[in-house]
Structure formats: structure tokens, C-alpha cells
């Protein structure tokens, strides 16, 4: 009888803790792994973990912020990019697609649509990765509706770096703030 009661309270508290973690993770704060080369100078391609703020206002988003968003072309994937254009800005999509250094003449003609200016509509943003050469971003799927932005990234850790650096300094798994770099 006693053990049954203990089991019941344990179960209830596990459930409560699970619900709390889910709520916090969905609406307040997220700590998650990121993978891929698209944000390379800012985030490593492996072993990097980000601190994401889920509680933000769309009005506070600004050019230069690093954000988590759902990929418009695949609802199951999330991407981590930097905002490089706000509603009303005029953007040159991808001038490198018409460069004679990397493409031959027929490809330049085919890519012509990318060497154009577009105006970002209301409620949308332009996002690009920091590593422009290896990033699938607004240059391919065009403007991103703000409603798809799920969080703002404020800091990152590299968990493979250890608590103490090679020089003997405390550096807490290379904890670093990710700030708005826009000048």
C-alpha cells in the first residue's frame, strides 16, 4: 500500500515536471544543438549549442538579429539565420549568381532572376546565413514571413571545448553572447 502511494506521487511529479519543461521549452527558453555550415564564423558546424529566447515580440526584431525559424519549404525543418532585411527594404537577391568568375554565359542568363532588386513586403524579413557560400536561405526560398520566426538566439556554447580552456582559463564551454553585429 505504501509503495503504491509512493509510485503514484512519483508519477504525478514526473508528469508535472515534464509539463513544466515542455511549457518553458515552447514559450520561454530553448537550449538546443545546431548543425550545418551555414552560420560558420558565428556557430560551428558541429557540437554547438544555442541559447534561444522564445519569448520575444515581433516588433523588437531588427536587422542583424540571429533567429530560429521554420523553413518555409519544409515545416519539419528549422533553420538558424541572421536577419539582413526588414519590411520595406530593397534587396539585391544574389549578385554572385551572375558572376563570370563562377558561371559560364548560359548559366548567367539562366540565373538572371537572381541579379535583381526586390522590395521586402510587409510582415516579412530577409534572412541569410553568415557563411554565404554554404547557406540555403532567402536567396533560394525568398522572403520569410515573420510568423515563421520561432526564437531569437542570444548566446551559444561549444560543448566539445571543456570547462577550462587549454591556457587554463575558465571559459565555460566557450560561452559567448551572440549580439547584433549590424553597423
Amino acid at each position: 500500500m505504501e509503495s503504491l502511494k509512493f509510485l503514484k506521487t512519483t508519477l504525478i511529479w514526473t508528469l508535472k515536471a515534464g509539463c513544466l519543461i515542455h511549457l518553458v521549452n515552447e514559450n520561454l527558453y530553448e537550449f538546443n544543438e545546431t548543425r550545418g555550415e551555414s552560420m560558420l564564423p558565428t556557430l560551428q558546424s558541429t557540437n554547438d549549442y544555442i541559447h534561444g529566447l522564445k519569448w520575444f515580440s515581433y516588433k523588437d526584431l531588427d536587422i542583424g538579429d540571429v533567429i530560429i525559424a521554420i523553413k518555409p519549404s519544409d515545416p519539419n525543418q528549422r533553420v538558424c539565420k541572421r536577419i539582413t532585411g526588414m519590411p520595406g527594404d530593397i534587396i539585391l537577391v544574389d549578385p554572385s549568381s551572375s558572376s563570370p568568375l563562377t558561371y559560364n554565359q548560359t548559366e548567367i542568363v539562366k540565373n538572371d532572376g537572381f541579379n535583381k532588386f526586390i522590395k521586402i513586403p510587409k510582415g516579412h524579413v530577409w534572412v541569410t546565413g553568415d557563411n554565404l557560400c554554404h547557406s540555403l536561405d532567402s536567396r533560394s526560398y525568398s522572403v520569410l514571413p515573420m510568423a515563421l520566426i520561432k526564437g531569437k538566439i542570444i548566446a551559444a556554447n561549444s560543448l566539445n571545448k571543456g570547462f577550462i580552456s587549454e591556457d587554463g582559463d575558465l571559459w565555460f564551454w566557450n560561452f559567448r553572447r551572440i549580439s547584433n553585429l549590424f553597423i
Partner: peptide, 28 residues
């Protein structure tokens, strides 16, 4: 485009829909 939808209101003359903002992403 891939994973997008074309949406319209039933009241054709009083609706802000894909004819104004284009196809919408399924993630929305």
C-alpha cells in the same frame, strides 16, 4: 512552390487571400 498552399476566401469580393500575398507556406 514546394510545401506551399493557395488559399482563398469564399467571399471572392471581400477577402484578403493568396491573390494579395501569394501562396503561403504550410508551416504557417
Amino acid at each position: 512552390p514546394r510545401n506551399h498552399l493557395w488559399v482563398e476566401g469564399d467571399n471572392e469580393f471581400h477577402s484578403i487571400d493568396s491573390n494579395n500575398f501569394g501562396p503561403i507556406s504550410q508551416a504557417l
